[in-house]
């Protein structure tokens, strides 16, 4: 029941974001539509249970830090992409690389994928649950091991405390 309400509320909030509105009537309409969708589509729209619990205070304290780190990655990625587009940096070694999922929960995998894909220069292609790998395309994979190390370091420093 909690998952159903959570999913309906999440869809309601997405509806409000789409309308760029904070009108309570829009929220009510969004939650109603979300509830109808959840009822019609069932489990396909429900949030997966988060296996790892994080104290809400810890999450609240570290969330701004995590957001700041993601924003910094976006700035660095945009700058790097801009240099490559205007021919000031080489475009020699783009490619597809595998990153181990490691200890991430399902929510953690989703957040890692979202945060990494948001930054220009990296896009999630697949999640391989059998091999427990995330498959990304990166604009520069001249040193794949360094990329993997950086990906893990970002998770350990900023994400683990918020979305493990």
């Amino acid at each position: 029941m909690r998952a159903v309400i959570g999913s309906a509320l999440g869809l309601g909030l997405l509806f409000m974001l789409t309308l760029a509105s904070i009108d309570p009537v829009d929220l009510a309409l969004g939650v109603t539509l979300g509830a109808v969708l959840v009822a019609l589509l069932g489990r396909r729209l429900r949030l997966a249970p988060d296996g790892v619990a994080v104290a809400p205070i810890q999450r609240a304290v570290w969330f701004p830090v995590f957001l700041g780190a993601v924003f910094a990655e976006i700035l660095v990625g945009t700058w790097d992409m801009a240099l490559r587009v205007v021919h000031l940096r080489d475009l020699k070694h783009p490619g597809v690389v595998r990153f181990p999922i490691g200890e991430r929960s399902e929510h953690g995998v989703a957040i890692s994928a979202l945060a990494t894909t948001l930054s220009p220069g990296s896009v999630l292609l697949e999640i391989d649950w059998e091999r427990r790998d995330l498959v990304f395309h990166f604009i520069d994979v001249s040193d794949p091991d360094r990329l993997r190390e950086r990906f893990e370091r970002f998770y350990d420093r900023y994400q683990r405390k918020v979305f493990p």
Binding site: L14, P94, G95, A113, L114, T117, V123, L124
Partner: peptide, 30 residues
């Protein structure tokens, strides 16, 4: 929220269709 999802959808479709990378030194671990 939506930009990465859209990029992922296009990227996944291209990867599953085995779209080639047109750079000779491109790396593909898959």
């Amino acid at each position: 929220l939506t930009t990465p999802v859209a990029a992922h959808a296009i990227g996944r479709a291209a990867h599953r269709r085995e779209e080639p990378m047109h750079i000779s030194e491109a790396v593909d671990e898959t």
